[in-house]
Design a protein around this nucleic acid. Sequence first.
RNA 1: UCCUCGAUAGCUCAACGGUAGAGCACCCGGCUGUUAACCGGGUGGUUGUUGGUUCGAAUCCAACUCGGGGAGCCA
Length: 463
Amino acid sequence: MNKVTVRQLFKDATSYMNQRIQVSGWVRTIRDSKSFGFIELNDGSFFNNLQIVIDDSLSNFAEVVKLGVGSAIVVDGLLVESPGAKQPFELKAEQVHIEGECPPEYPLQKKRHSFEFLRTIAHLRPRTNTFSAVFRIRSLAAYAIHKYFQERNFVYVHTPIITGSDCEGAGEMFRVTTLDPKNPPLTDTGEVNFKEDFFGRETNLTVSGQLEVETYCMAFRNVYTFGPTFRAENSNTARHAAEFWMIEPEMAFATLEDDMELAEDMLKYLINYCLEHAPEEMSFFNNFIDKGLFDRLENVVNSEFAHVTYTEAIELLKKANTSFDYPVEWGKDLQTEHERYLTEQIFKKPVFVTDYPKDIKAFYMRMNDDEKTVAAMDCLVPGVGEIIGGSQREERLDRLEKRMAELKLKPEDYWWYLDIRKYGGTKHAGFGLGFERAIMYITGMSNIRDVVSFPRTVKSADF
RNA sequence: UCCUCGAUAGCUCAACGGUAGAGCACCCGGCUGUUAACCGGGUGGUUGUUGGUUCGAAUCCAACUCGGGGAGCCA
């Protein structure tokens, strides 16, 4: 028997029309009458279901009709054109083999469930329309990111997950240790003695691969990391997870302008790739998750991103005919409401805000000639706000050391990072894109917990 | 961490100080082209936890737990 996936059928129905084929998958719903019935079968290969027509000529008709939603079956039958309006073709079953029954207590019903409930059954939710679509997009997007960078000869660098650099400054870290928490070895002064720990020092899960990837940038010119990162921040929002993936490209001999060009181009490529390669899923999101999704994505893909300096943005916000909850003032970071006003009301498209005051940005960002601002950029998009943050890095050793001293960072903790400036340093720039936030933006899903297979958030690490 | 809303049947919700209910799911029956199938009947509850107020609490109060939305921090 010719084994076929539902994807093959939908992509090339004519090759299989009026042929005897075998499909296998899971029952999404059964509608039955006295002597015939219909099964909606999803085989995982494609977003849409295949309609199976069954009748009492089947030896096990009575048994098949009683199958619960979620049952696994293998069907032999004839592919025919469907008289029904909702599907182009259907499979007239000649034999239905029951692989795995699904009892009535199966939590998924054929009606809509709340996302909150589905989070409690994260092991079953990929079987629903929404999560099937989300995780196929997530898979495609991950591939598209590699494809984008590989086609441009960026080298993929696996930066470490366990890191000994405890001062990346990007947030609270998760400790990695094999010491017994009830009885740790102590030093003479009564502190925990990490010299006796597995690595002989304090180690943590990485909060960013940037510092490490910068070192490979000085060897391969254009590089990127794409992997998990961890933040032990007590952030309780729909946009934060303790474990998330980041894309961090880094380019040598590049300026902030090159950096923004890359960010804009990559974002557009990513969106186009998903629209092109998962049209069924994307239409589903546009119809059922976020009615304005296509308009928003097309606006991003077809517009030149706006550019504005932080200082100009402050002026624009001060002139804005709106009262903000937080005051607009040069030197203070832009609040969420300010960012959204800029991108949604003033520019109505993605916008790069550049050249922030040095005091609200990281130590490694390149000092501008005005000595007050640094060559940083945030990319703000309508609907979400900040999606990308990047900068040109400070390549001048003396300036970097001076800045670190101001911030009371110990040079010995960064000896290898400073070496990069010492030995053939060049100007370079990069950015970080939160993968989950990109997926949220592309799908219209509004909670990060619903774009991660098994999300880890504050007080929650089930599965 | 702060503000705010919420937790009632397997799911989605109603009942707002006086007998805990509906739709869906599930079970039984009917139906020869359904598509969130339809029609009839039925099963299903320690009202998140603990304590308090009251003749009486799902309902009012307090604490806790968990969840939603917003904010901070950020990606």
